[in-house]
Amino acid sequence: MSTAQPHGLHHVTAVAEAPQRNVDFYCRVLGLRLVKQTVNFDAPGAYHLYYGDGAGRPSSLITFFAWRDVPRGRLGTGLATATAFSIPEGSASWWRDHLRAQGVEADVTTRHGADVVAFRDPDGMVLELVTAAGDTRSGWDGVAGVPAEHALRGLHAVTLTERALDPTAEVLTSLLGMGLDGEDGGRARFAMGDGGSGALVDVHGTTSAERGLQAGGTVHHVAFRAPDETALARWRQGLVDAGLEATEVLDRKYFRSVYFREPGGVLFEIATDAPGFDVDEPLLELGRRLQLPPWLEPDREQIAAALPPLHVPDDQDAGLVPTD
């Protein structure tokens, strides 16, 4: 019997080196909204930047710990090695051309019957844009040179690279309630709930790749959606009962969450949908100013002084402001 049945991806968190370069790429090149400018709660000397749709809804989010001078990581086993976003059907060639015009190498391939635009961000993180039929999410509505008809809709899938596929598959199916949804090119696809874009995990099993090194340009953890804190606590207990080491429920201000590692080494998180990103600033002003949790507020002046200045693009909120 499964102990948890997440209803999709909540967010993916990765590691970047230069905060301003990160903002410029994800806002200006990919057209996402910076929905929260805060710090790593466990190491407040570094930014924690959240990007997503207009409201920062779960399943639209990619976040970054921005550590200055962090060394470049190495892709390999025991890591999430690709993060995919959903784009509308027919948008692959537009994105390929748009990315190339921005100096980003991008190629179009096909996987699971969908077009996939593959490229890397400035830190070397592997990203994919996948044409997803039936994805009704609106995404962020066409700022920073990305028309609404081509805008990223939200997270589509994550790819895990593992030396042994079976132990990870056992956790995904028996403990996280996912179902095997097919295989393609040495990858096994697992789906949450009814499946579809935003609820998919691909696992690539390989014995030839070396162990990955988590640092700049790699994923730190993958988070799945829990409906509420009651379910989160129940799922945590189920993980512990199954012999996995899970943290206590942690207060991340915008959600509550539990962390644990699957057998291959990838760090997983289960995070609640609520309370969301408008708990400390209005929807119209998301991401404009540094926000801190209550326990760090007494140190605001010291924390802010240690962080590099961050400029949010002027057109960041254009999609929320009525125009003439």
Rank of each mutant, 00 (worst) to 15 (best):
M178S: 11
S91D: 11
L286N: 07
L34D: 01
C27V: 12
H221R: 02
L286W: 11
I62D: 03
R33Y: 00
G90T: 05
D123H: 01
T81V: 09
H11W: 03
A144K: 06
V35K: 06
G193R: 08
E89R: 13
E89M: 12
L160G: 01
G31F: 06
H311K: 14
P298W: 07
D121I: 03
G134R: 06
R72M: 11
Q302D: 09
L284Q: 15
D115L: 07
S2A: 15
L172T: 00
A16L: 06
S138V: 15
L232S: 02
G45E: 15
L49C: 13
L32C: 08
V222H: 01
G216E: 06
G198D: 07
F190A: 09
I87P: 05
V249D: 01
R234M: 09
N22Y: 05
A133N: 09
E245H: 00
Q237W: 00
D317A: 14
A132D: 13
D181L: 03
Q5E: 11
L99T: 10
D141S: 15
L250V: 11
R120W: 08
A209C: 08
E210I: 10
A274Y: 07
A271Y: 00
A4C: 13
Y254W: 14
V23W: 03
E229S: 13
T131L: 03
L310Y: 01
D97E: 15
Q20K: 09
L267E: 14
G182P: 12
L79E: 10
A144Y: 08
L49E: 12
V258S: 02
V12N: 06
W140L: 10
T173N: 08
R72I: 10
L49H: 12
G113P: 09
D181A: 15
A148D: 10
T161Y: 02
A16K: 08
V158L: 04
W140H: 14
H221W: 00
D202L: 12
